[in-house]
Amino acid sequence: MNILLAEDDVRLGQLVSHMLKKKGGYRVDWVEQGDDSYDYALASHYDVLILDWMMSGKDGVTVCRELRSAGYCGPILMLTAKDALQDRVEGLDAGADDYLVKPFEMDELLARIRALGRRNFAPIQEESVSFRRFTLNRTSRNLYVDGNHVQLSPKEFQLLDLFLKNRGQVLTRDIILDRIWGYDADVSYKIVDATVKLLRKKLDAELIQSIRGVGYKLDG
């Protein structure tokens, strides 16, 4: 399972992220800003979103409400120190599927995640995006060029999907690192450049433009 954790308490964020990976075996992206959690949720696939209520920038309830307004259908678990009935109602009304009050035990958080993962939140639908000679199927994670299947590695798929969602915009290497590997990953710019190079070989090379000293852009 892929999990997005949004928590601005650095100590708690580090602990929860570590325990989710160690005890749950999950892949975890951890962000500290509400605005980042909104962007990450829409840019990548996550099985569960864990949103802290009180975050700098947009708070968790605002992020939850805006995600639901944008059509996001995945499970959302809210973490908060607020335990009044009115607060619980507000969080659930904003679109949260579950609610866990701080402080909490990791075993309970893991149980809540497993329960959310078993629930059917949305029908499975084929989602494809076409661009020039290419069609990317986000459900099967397949790329077709002129109707012919082209094999992509998981990172190549994520990178191409990121470019397509930000067509015509310059993506810095830092943004690509954050979105594809996670900002706390031990990955250098050389890995970004190498992955772009591999992806270019499977597309028209000129589609992904190098912006000197900055990053890359998919020709819009």
Results as ranks from 00 to 15, higher is better:
24 G>H: 11
10 V>Y: 14
40 Y>S: 06
11 R>K: 07
145 V>I: 07
144 Y>C: 00
30 W>F: 09
212 R>P: 01
44 S>V: 00
69 S>M: 14
79 L>Q: 02
186 D>N: 13
79 L>C: 00
10 V>A: 13
24 G>Y: 11
71 G>I: 13
189 Y>A: 14
200 R>V: 01
213 G>S: 05
31 V>W: 02
141 R>G: 00
171 L>N: 01
35 D>E: 12
46 Y>P: 03
208 I>E: 06
197 K>V: 05
154 P>H: 05
148 N>E: 15
37 S>M: 04
213 G>K: 01
10 V>M: 13
34 G>T: 05
52 D>G: 06
6 A>I: 02
9 D>T: 05
217 K>S: 11
120 N>P: 03
27 R>S: 12
1 M>E: 12
193 D>E: 15
176 I>K: 02
66 E>M: 05
23 K>S: 14
18 H>Q: 14
151 Q>W: 08
136 L>D: 09
34 G>D: 03
217 K>Y: 06
13 G>I: 00
110 L>C: 08
163 F>P: 09
1 M>Y: 11
95 G>F: 07
180 I>V: 12
72 Y>Q: 10
74 G>D: 03
141 R>D: 00
72 Y>W: 12
173 R>Q: 12
31 V>S: 03
135 T>E: 09
25 G>M: 10
51 L>D: 01
139 T>S: 12
78 M>F: 06
122 A>E: 15
218 L>V: 12
32 E>T: 13
43 A>D: 08
3 I>C: 14
22 K>F: 09
7 E>F: 03
